[in-house]
Computed example of a mutant assay.
Amino acid sequence: MTLLPGTAVPPPPPAALLRVENLSKRFGGLQAVDNVSFELAAGQMLALIGPNGAGKSTTFNLLNGQIAPDQGHIRLANIDLAGLSPREIGRQGVGRTFQTAAVFGSFSVLENIQIALLARDRRLFSFWRKAQGYRTDEAMDLLAQVGMQDSAGRLCGVLAYGDIKRVELAIALAGRPRLLLMDEPAAGMTAPERHALMALVRRLADERDMAILFTEHSLDVVFAHANSIVVLAQGRIIAAGTPGEIRTHEGVRSAYLGSTRV
């Protein structure tokens, strides 16, 4: 690249934390994921979108170790995660939240975080012996990061759904993830709730230098909060780029059944 005199040299793009290379998975006669490759840098948010049956969930399950790929590599920094178990992948710094929030409703908000800290520290936990008192300061700090410290003593079972999603996020953060996988994080939430949650995730990604990969059907959330977008259809990547590039991509419009607004 030739620069004119006095022109500032643009900063180099951030190095990739996650590299997905030629990832493929077949179930019988169905090629669910077909030669998928993309990169994600620390501090960035990448949205993986596509119509139903595009291969998003399978890709997520491959990244998380729920299923093993037929071929390809999943590199977190210099570690190949392909074929490792979910527990082994978690220990390498990969966290995950789910479309349906998973918390213990009969335990307090604080105890839910303490249980997550026990699991991170590989300490045995019994439902007959609650987690009360375990790393309370750290647990409260995690709740403060998601704005739930004032609800620490409340049972999770009585919380509003948006607050439950914040608790689930704190649970994921307890594992100190470098990469956080978020499966439909805004599902079941109102528009203000989902934008507030994703703005919180954006802030945490910046503060923690944490990479975020998320799937989401609410395209207003995708275009408002993602740094980059990968679009799948029938297991293949049909487009990848910035929100502005994806919004005007004709192939993406076609994949979404000719929608004039994506």
Rank of each mutant, 00 (worst) to 15 (best):
T2C: 01
L3D: 02
P11L: 06
P12Q: 01
A16K: 06
L18C: 01
V20P: 11
E21F: 02
N22G: 04
R26D: 01
F27G: 00
F27L: 11
F27P: 04
V33G: 04
S37H: 04
L40I: 12
L40C: 07
A41K: 02
G43C: 09
G43T: 08
Q44K: 15
M45N: 02
M45I: 15
L46V: 14
S57W: 00
S57V: 08
T59D: 02
T59R: 01
N64E: 02
N64D: 08
Q66A: 11
Q66V: 05
I67F: 07
A68H: 07
D70C: 05
Q71F: 07
H73M: 02
H73D: 06
I74D: 00
R75S: 00
L76N: 06
N78A: 13
I79L: 11
I79V: 13
P86M: 08
P86I: 09
E88S: 13
R96T: 00
A102P: 00
L110Q: 08
L110S: 02
I115L: 15
F125L: 08
R129S: 13
A131C: 07
A131Y: 07
Q132P: 03
G133S: 10
T136F: 09
L143M: 12
L143E: 05
L143F: 08
A144C: 13
A144Q: 15
Q145M: 00
Q149D: 12
C156A: 15
A160G: 13
Y161K: 10
G162F: 12
G162R: 13
D163G: 03
K165Y: 10
I171Y: 03
A172W: 03
L173E: 00
A174N: 07
R176G: 00
R176C: 00
P177F: 00
D183F: 08
D183L: 02
P185A: 01
A187K: 07
G188H: 04
M189E: 01
P192K: 14
A196Q: 15
L197E: 14
M198K: 14
L200Y: 05
R202Y: 00
D206H: 05
F214I: 06
H217E: 04
S218L: 07
D220Y: 09
V221M: 10
A224H: 13
A226V: 06
L232H: 11
A233V: 11
R236D: 01
I237T: 10
G244R: 15
G244Y: 10
H249W: 04
H249E: 14
G251A: 14
V252N: 05
R253G: 05
S254V: 10
S254K: 09
L257V: 10
G258Y: 03
